[in-house]
Design a binder for these strands. Structure first.
Lengths: 218, 218
DNA sequence: ATAATATCGATATCCAGATACTGATATAAA
DNA sequence: TTTATATCAGTATCTGGATATCGATATTAT
């Protein structure tokens, strides 16, 4: 019984994953001039459960929701962005300037999420030295030292799968604390490093299975 | 109480999502000349729970695992690919030939997953008519009829978020049954359509939060 | 042949998260 | 001012999935 709650309010991983959805939705509403919104409405629009929405909002909102009126959108947005750490800029590096890497380098939404990709790294001399979407592509062997020197803590891996572990190790060596891995392979990293796998093969599996059953039953 | 179990063995969504991981790992082992493997070894290598691995394997394997020896890799691979429907080709269309769209068009791994992107669609006349990675880029207004005509059931959405719902509707009209959505927005579609969101903003949220706490605690 | 051991399948327990329910309360209408 | 109602917050229940446990069994070593 030695385990203790560290923080008074905990927010579940799933709820956290839903936040950007809410955020996008709330910003849209705001743009349309709406100033307040209630859980049932959100639930209906995003096809979620009403109670779930209410709990999610309660978990992040500083102000309370009012019966009949709901929540103030502006406050909600602020609270969510705050929880998600969108208000302070986090520098990141990207390894692998292929198509996927470029896609991420050009992704505008990162800016409003507080993530800023500082530079890209690649082993291919043909791209090293060039610029993609205003970001320099540097030689891969500089990755580690660069991270260290600029105190960067997020690494994005978009290299082919046989290079992914090497890059991962370099990132860890460079002091990276969170890795966003797009390579379809399991990375081993120390426990204190967060590895988030953007698992396209997993998604494909779900689609594939679903379709298979759908068609079989017809 | 009119609901009945259709298939005797059900496989959970999470387990399904893990399958490509196992698959990748098993193929790697196979390439190294290994012919059999046991759950504890897999668990150790992929940092999963031993029991979980065993249950996952049991869920898909036709042959049983033997104590001390484990499972035959070749059989496992076959069974998994079969469950995931990798053995029959599923045609797909892609809407939005931007960076992300190109990344997916060039993604080789889809081929061994039974997914075949037939063509891409875009509204931009500058790219319409061109070819990307051997795939034709066609005018967006042909999307619906094309799907219908070629009997295509998978749609991939990589357009900007303000066009995503329109594209989604076109796909549904064209008889698409499963949608892989990369736009950071909630799509509304009929219940019988599977919408899988590749939720990069959600991943970013997790990373962001983690990092925030990590740095705060230091 | 027998004993030791790794791994298996099956059953039981535990936990996180989703959903349902209940009483309280702020707004709006009568 | 009173009544009706939508929505809230909080508590309770349910469910799926992850983990732990245990007896059974195939292989290996003695």
């Amino acid at each position: 019984m030695s385990r203790e709650k560290e923080s008074p309010i905990t927010i579940s991983t799933q709820a956290l994953e839903r936040m950007p959805y809410y955020l996008q939705y709330l910003k849209q509403l705001q743009k349309e001039g709406v100033t307040a919104v209630a859980s049932p409405a959100i639930a209906a629009d995003l096809t979620l459960n009403e109670v779930q929405v209410r709990k999610d909002l309660a978990a992040v909102s500083t102000s309370k929701g009012k019966p009949k009126a709901g929540f103030v959108i502006e406050d909600l947005i602020y609270n969510m962005e705050d929880i998600l750490g969108y208000h302070n800029v986090k520098d990141a590096v990207l390894a692998g300037a292929g198509f996927l890497g470029r896609a991420l380098l050009s992704y505008k939404d990162f800016d409003n999420s507080g993530m800023h990709i500082v530079a890209a790294f690649d082993t291919d001399n043909a791209v090293v030295g060039s610029e993609i979407c205003g970001k320099k592509v540097l030689s891969a062997d500089k990755l580690s030292s660069m991270c260290r020197r600029l105190n960067i803590h997020i690494g994005i891996i978009t290299v082919p799968k046989d290079q992914a572990q090497t890059v991962c190790d370099q990132m860890v060596a460079g002091g990276i604390l969170a890795i966003w891995n797009f390579a379809p392979i399991h990375l081993s990293a120390p426990d204190n490093i967060l590895v988030r796998n953007e698992n396209m093969t997993a998604s494909l599996a779900i689609l594939s299975k679903h379709l298979q059953e759908k068609i079989k039953h017809t």
